[in-house]
Design a protein around this nucleic acid. Structure first.
Lengths: 188, 188
DNA sequence: ACCTGAACACCGTTCAAGT
DNA sequence: ACCTGAACACCGTTCAAGT
């Protein structure tokens, strides 16, 4: 393990300002938000932004890390409050709401669900996959979930359903309906 | 109805070259393909591109119109060959394959499925919604499809599932599985 | 009527100069 | 060690000048 030296005071200040501004900007303008604009709003040269976050993806991940951790914690909360099947359903619902409401989070969560060799060990991916795995295991043991469905598949399908609901009403009532269509199936 | 005067010969030539080049460019680089590049490759000034297609969306729609019409025709073919439920399933599958394989088509089909007041009467939307409506009506009459599912909902869900499959393996084997999970449901 | 391409505004990214 | 901001390349869009 490499030692992480503490940042210089000004660097740390810039880093945190960037994170805060970036979270706002991505939420407002989506994942395509202007990086130059983020640097300016944070009162920082554009080079500084690139020093801290070499790619847009890195900034996106850092900006929403706490939110993603929130989802992971929420999974365990729900697991205590509800029977496994309902906990899983509710968690997926809340995940979808976040996906739809916070522009930029969709891309981030999506990239945590791709089967690309490198993206698998992304911090964000670890959190969300872990949480899903715990909920799925419980629901399986309870016997309410098809035993052949993998956690990651569930995450991807929910991600897709969030997209479908977005097409319908930009995240209004249809989300709950579409999620229930997924769990119930389409057969007569 | 407004009379459509025939285009001047050079205009028509440019129009068609633009369509051809645009279809290639969108397929290769996705919906974000450089418009300037498309104009150059078509041997045309950038202003000419904007004259014919005032928005990127307009160009996208024109470039893939024949493909979308192809999907509509395919729906009727399948309706003759297969029992209604299977025809619907197969059509949705093929639609998803197109969505995944031809970059740019995803955005176009997606915009044909949004519930935005203006997008409803888009040419592309009319085609694809009409085809879905016919297949759904038959499957409903046959009794294999939940009677409360609207055609447009099915299109949106399939679109979402295509996205999910894209996350999995970029459009390989998982598409069939995810579509069947949707139709079968997730319950044990 | 239609086309061209220069002009403008904007953005991402790099890097030499500064502290 | 870190920051700044000018510089470069690229892109979308408009519009005056041309045929």
């Amino acid at each position: 393990m490499t030692q992480v030296r503490p940042m210089r005071a000004d660097a740390r200040r810039n880093y945190e300002r960037l994170l805060k501004v970036a979270a706002e900007a991505f939420a407002e303008h989506g994942e395509g938000a202007s990086l130059d604009d983020i640097a300016k709003r944070a009162g920082v040269g554009s080079g500084t932004l690139y020093r801290h976050f070499p790619t847009r993806q890195a900034l996106l991940e850092a900006a929403y890390l706490d939110r993603v951790e929130g989802f992971a914690r929420r999974a365990d909360e729900l697991a205590k409050e509800l029977p496994p099947g309902e906990a899983l359903a509710e968690w997926l619902y809340e995940l979808c709401v976040g996906t739809i409401q916070v522009r930029g989070l969709k891309t981030l969560l999506g990239s945590a669900m791709v089967d690309g060799s490198d993206a698998v060990l992304t911090v964000c991916g670890t959190h969300v996959r872990g949480a899903a795995a715990r909920l799925v295991a419980a629901a399986r043991a309870e016997g309410t979930l098809r035993p052949d469905v993998e956690p990651i598949e569930l995450l991807r399908l929910a991600h897709g359903v969030a997209g479908a609901a977005e097409l319908a009403d930009g995240g209004g009532e249809s989300l709950r309906r579409y999620l229930s269509l997924l769990t119930e199936g389409l057969r007569a």
